[in-house]
Design a protein around this nucleic acid. Structure first.
Lengths: 180, 180
DNA sequence: ACCTGAACACCGTTCAAGT
DNA sequence: ACCTGAACACCGTTCAAGT
């Protein structure tokens, strides 16, 4: 109800356009009426964030090649994030979502990592490294400038290729094999 | 002059405490007087960001072991960022600094990567992956929750250890050797 | 349960004017 | 060059009151 309107505002005018007052305006309602449906702006953003993760395609924990499955999971996450540039900034500002969808994906990753032969003590670390890489590169792609050479900003396809290459480097290091 | 006051505000009350009006108040001056010294709030933040990178200790491009030198450079960057939690959020929101210090560090990284045997076409990609890892983990450490298990937030030392491990994984993948 | 009116305590920025 | 007064167009949130 309210969430849909918030998503529309985000799609139209970006993150700056999503204010409680603008949201109220779109719903033809007084600014404070929003607080009957949401606890605070922070709470609204949290719901928005976790909602988006529902779109990530997560391979089953029983996939034949667990390393390839992890790569697909992270790549799908990257694609979902990049498709919603304004949300990426939100992810960064609140360091990732923590709703039910985020938890579900985290557990799937852990299961796949264990099957890939990663020791139990290392799975949590590997998971965090992969998540940092994915969210970080999505932020990079949408903002287009961690690069110290601002004269030549890289394109979306270059960023995606860079994400892929980094992902292979990471997975190679994690499973102890040379990069494929 | 103005920058010092801005830094003090940041240290005392965090990112939310740094407003143009608060800055003016601290300097006993009208809010708009700040605009005689800085172009906008965005410009002020950019200067603040690049200033901080001056504190990073960068090994010489001629270091004997270039891979170890890269690790030291990234670790120093991580430490500098973590020591200034409020700035990390700024780095994220503007996807890294682009001032003279950022450029200097980028060139140093490229030189070390080439000496580590990374092909010329891959140096820019490797540099970006390492930067994403470093800024991302610094954000993780200061915000303390990309982790899908919020019940057990990880400590500063755990985050640092996780950063180190991820850095080794990455470097192993980049130079094509098993992780050390 | 859900809304309104009114208010509180703020923002960044601009413009014209002063010294 | 650097400052002020006044204003513009906003914020998130709370409180008391209405239906």
């Amino acid at each position: 109800v309210v969430l849909r309107a918030a998503r529309e505002l985000l799609a139209e005018g970006g993150i700056d356009a999503l204010s409680m007052r603008a949201l109220a305006g779109r719903l033809q309602v007084a600014p404070n009426a929003i607080y009957s449906h949401v606890e605070s702006k922070t709470g609204l953003l949290d719901e928005l964030l976790d909602d988006t993760l529902a779109e990530v395609h997560a391979p089953p924990a029983t996939a034949r090649d667990p390393v390839a499955a992890i790569a697909r999971l992270m790549t799908s996450t990257y694609d979902v994030l990049v498709a919603r540039p304004d949300l990426v900034a939100l992810y960064l500002s609140r360091q990732g979502a923590r709703g039910p969808n985020a938890i579900r994906l985290g557990e799937r990753m852990d299961a796949l990592l264990v099957r890939a032969g990663v020791t139990v003590t290392a799975t949590a670390e590997a998971r965090r490294v992969l998540i940092v890489h994915t969210i970080g590169f999505a932020a990079f792609a949408t903002g287009a400038a961690i690069d110290p050479d601002p004269a030549r900003p890289i394109s979306a396809t270059e960023s995606r290729r860079n994400f892929d290459r980094g992902l292979r480097w990471l997975l190679a290091g994690i499973v102890g094999a040379p990069p494929g």
